[in-house]
Amino acid sequence: MGKKPFSSDIEAARYPPPPPPSFYMQQPRQWFSWLVPLIFIANVAMFVYSMYVNDCPSYLNEEVCLFYEYLGRFSFQPINENPLLGPSVRTLRLLGALEKDLVVGEDEAWRFFTCMFLHAGVIHVLANMFSLLFIGVRLENEFGFHKIGILYLLSGFGGSLLSLMHLRDAIVPNTISVGASGALFGLLGAMLSELLTNWTIYLNKCAALTSLLFIIGLNLAVGFLPHVDNSAHIGGFLSGFFLGFILLIRPQFGYVNKKYVPPGYDAKRKPKHKVYQYVFLILRVTEMCDSASTA
């Protein structure tokens, strides 16, 4: 009597203490990139169609059309007319190139967007499309087709708008502007604002910022070459830069959604965004609203 019941260590080990609750941080969603390849196909198809409509042999002597013996109807305009190996200005204007008199005088505002899918030549379209795949696929994988689609179209529109203002002061009359460069520079601008907004999640911050600024500076320097509309580049870049603060904001490092925290885990969670992220967001929304009201 009065003795404590015997229990061996083996019996006590049958019911080990429960482990402390744990949780795993949710991984960022990886989107399948389909919109950027679709834009790539649309631009290439539109260039092929522009060469079909151009039909150089029907308007000029077959001998002056470049590569007529191989391309026939799809042969290029003479080098002295189009050094980029492409269609004539007449064809680009017909298919929707940006021109001041047609947009302002004829109320053809749709040219703000159609000019984004036209290119002056093979060199032009290849340079833009390789840049699109290099930049756009990664952004679409990280942020989704809906955000990148909005960013692409609005940046292209911003580039077209500034380009139209530049065409208004052009010395040569009836100057046109074509190309996806404004939208592509918008993606570059958005990458810069995304880096600044989501600064806490990057490991090699200085290296990422330096390399990105070098790429942006190199592309902007190309805009000073002859026959290149740098105003579209700048307009697209600024549009994408401001939109990136709104569309590409991500949770700060260490944030965990409440639904991933198990019951009984009362650890203090980080807020979803840093204060400076909200400051950037408010400033950009305010600036864009002021710009819209001024316009």
Results as ranks from 00 to 15, higher is better:
residue 290 D to Y: 09
residue 200 T to K: 09
residue 10 I to Q: 06
residue 261 V to R: 02
residue 53 V to F: 15
residue 12 A to L: 13
residue 161 L to A: 00
residue 11 E to D: 04
residue 287 E to A: 09
residue 158 G to N: 13
residue 247 L to V: 03
residue 285 V to Y: 04
residue 42 A to D: 00
residue 208 A to W: 11
residue 54 N to Y: 10
residue 142 E to R: 15
residue 120 A to C: 00
residue 142 E to I: 02
residue 70 Y to S: 08
residue 94 L to A: 11
residue 87 P to M: 06
residue 192 L to M: 06
residue 66 L to M: 10
residue 285 V to Q: 00
residue 24 Y to I: 13
residue 203 L to I: 00
residue 62 E to I: 11
residue 235 G to M: 01
residue 191 M to K: 15
residue 160 S to M: 10
residue 252 Q to V: 08
residue 275 V to F: 07
residue 240 G to A: 12
residue 201 I to F: 14
residue 260 Y to W: 13
residue 84 L to D: 14
residue 117 F to E: 06
residue 184 L to H: 11
residue 269 R to E: 07
residue 165 M to Q: 04
residue 15 Y to V: 13
residue 135 I to D: 06
residue 220 L to H: 15
residue 67 F to A: 14
residue 165 M to H: 05
residue 252 Q to E: 09
residue 197 T to M: 07
residue 217 G to M: 03
residue 137 V to A: 09
residue 101 D to K: 06
residue 203 L to T: 03
residue 44 V to L: 10
residue 124 H to V: 07
residue 272 K to R: 14
residue 70 Y to R: 12
residue 226 P to G: 00
residue 33 S to L: 00
residue 20 P to I: 11
residue 166 H to V: 12
residue 210 T to M: 09
residue 39 I to C: 14
residue 112 F to A: 07
residue 147 K to A: 14
residue 108 E to F: 03
residue 147 K to V: 11
residue 252 Q to T: 09
residue 91 T to K: 10
residue 104 V to P: 04
residue 61 N to M: 00
residue 159 G to R: 12
residue 51 M to G: 07
residue 72 G to S: 06
residue 39 I to G: 15
residue 264 G to L: 09
residue 232 A to R: 13
residue 18 P to F: 11
residue 114 T to V: 01
residue 241 F to I: 03
residue 150 I to C: 11
residue 250 R to D: 15
residue 184 L to T: 08
residue 260 Y to P: 07
residue 179 G to W: 04
residue 169 D to V: 10
residue 63 E to V: 08
residue 45 A to Y: 08
residue 127 A to P: 03
residue 185 F to A: 02
residue 267 A to Q: 14
residue 103 V to G: 08
residue 51 M to C: 07
residue 33 S to V: 01
residue 27 Q to G: 02
residue 179 G to V: 05
residue 98 L to F: 05
residue 211 S to G: 07
residue 95 L to H: 09
residue 179 G to Y: 05
residue 179 G to R: 03
residue 153 L to K: 10
residue 103 V to S: 05
residue 92 L to P: 04
residue 5 P to R: 08
residue 226 P to M: 05
residue 286 T to P: 04
residue 175 T to S: 14
residue 178 V to C: 06
residue 113 F to Y: 09
residue 32 F to S: 03
residue 264 G to E: 10
residue 185 F to E: 07
residue 169 D to G: 06
residue 146 H to P: 11
residue 234 I to K: 14
residue 203 L to K: 05
residue 293 S to H: 01
residue 59 Y to W: 08
residue 158 G to S: 13
residue 29 R to A: 10
residue 244 G to D: 01
residue 123 I to C: 08
residue 152 Y to Q: 05
residue 82 N to T: 12
residue 17 P to K: 14
residue 102 L to H: 08
residue 196 L to S: 12
residue 236 G to L: 13
residue 180 A to W: 08
residue 100 K to Y: 07
residue 44 V to G: 00
residue 161 L to C: 01
